[in-house]
Deep mutational scan, measured.
Amino acid sequence: PPDDERKKAEKAARSGNEEKAREILERLGYSEDEARELAKRLR
Results as ranks from 00 to 15, higher is better:
P1F: 14
P1Y: 12
P1W: 15
P1S: 15
P2C: 12
P2V: 14
P2F: 15
P2H: 13
P2Y: 14
P2A: 15
D3L: 10
D3F: 08
D4C: 01
D4I: 12
D4K: 11
D4S: 13
D4R: 10
D4M: 09
E5W: 13
E5Y: 08
E5T: 08
E5Q: 11
E5V: 06
R6N: 04
R6E: 07
R6W: 15
K7C: 09
K7P: 04
K7N: 10
K7H: 09
K7D: 10
K7W: 12
K7T: 13
K8A: 14
K8P: 04
K8R: 11
K8D: 09
K8S: 10
K8E: 15
K8H: 09
A9H: 04
A9K: 02
A9M: 03
E10P: 02
E10M: 12
E10A: 13
E10G: 06
E10I: 15
E10Y: 14
K11N: 13
K11A: 15
K11L: 15
K11H: 14
K11Q: 15
A12S: 05
A12G: 04
A12Y: 15
A12H: 11
A12L: 14
A12D: 04
A12E: 12
A13L: 06
A13W: 07
A13Q: 03
A13G: 04
A13S: 04
R14N: 06
R14W: 10
S15F: 07
S15V: 06
S15I: 07
S15Q: 14
S15Y: 07
S15G: 11
S15P: 03
G16N: 05
G16H: 05
G16A: 05
G16S: 05
G16I: 04
G16L: 06
N17E: 09
N17A: 06
N17S: 06
N17G: 04
N17H: 10
N17M: 07
E18N: 04
E18S: 05
E18A: 07
E18K: 02
E18P: 04
E18M: 15
E19Y: 07
E19R: 12
K20W: 10
K20D: 06
K20F: 10
K20M: 13
K20S: 08
K20A: 11
K20R: 10
A21L: 08
A21G: 04
A21N: 04
A21Y: 05
R22A: 08
R22F: 04
R22T: 05
R22Y: 05
E23S: 07
E23N: 06
E23T: 06
I24H: 05
I24V: 02
I24E: 03
I24F: 04
L25E: 01
L25D: 00
E26M: 15
E26V: 15
R27N: 10
R27L: 10
R27V: 03
L28M: 14
L28R: 01
L28G: 02
L28Q: 03
L28C: 07
L28I: 08
L28E: 01
L28P: 00
L28S: 01
G29N: 01
G29W: 00
G29S: 00
G29T: 00
G29R: 00
Y30D: 00
Y30S: 01
S31R: 05
S31M: 05
S31G: 07
S31A: 06
S31E: 03
S31Q: 05
E32N: 07
E32P: 15
E32Y: 11
E32K: 14
E32V: 12
D33T: 11
D33P: 07
D33Y: 12
D33I: 09
E34C: 06
E34S: 06
E34K: 05
E34N: 05
E34Y: 09
E34M: 08
A35C: 08
A35P: 00
R36S: 06
R36D: 04
R36W: 07
R36V: 06
R36T: 06
R36Y: 08
E37Y: 09
E37L: 10
E37Q: 09
E37C: 04
E37H: 09
E37M: 08
L38S: 01
L38W: 07
L38T: 05
L38H: 04
A39H: 01
A39G: 01
A39K: 00
K40W: 12
K40F: 08
K40I: 08
K40Q: 12
R41G: 05
R41Y: 09
R41T: 08
R41V: 10
L42D: 02
L42G: 02
L42M: 15
R43A: 15
R43M: 13
R43L: 12
R43D: 04
R43V: 11
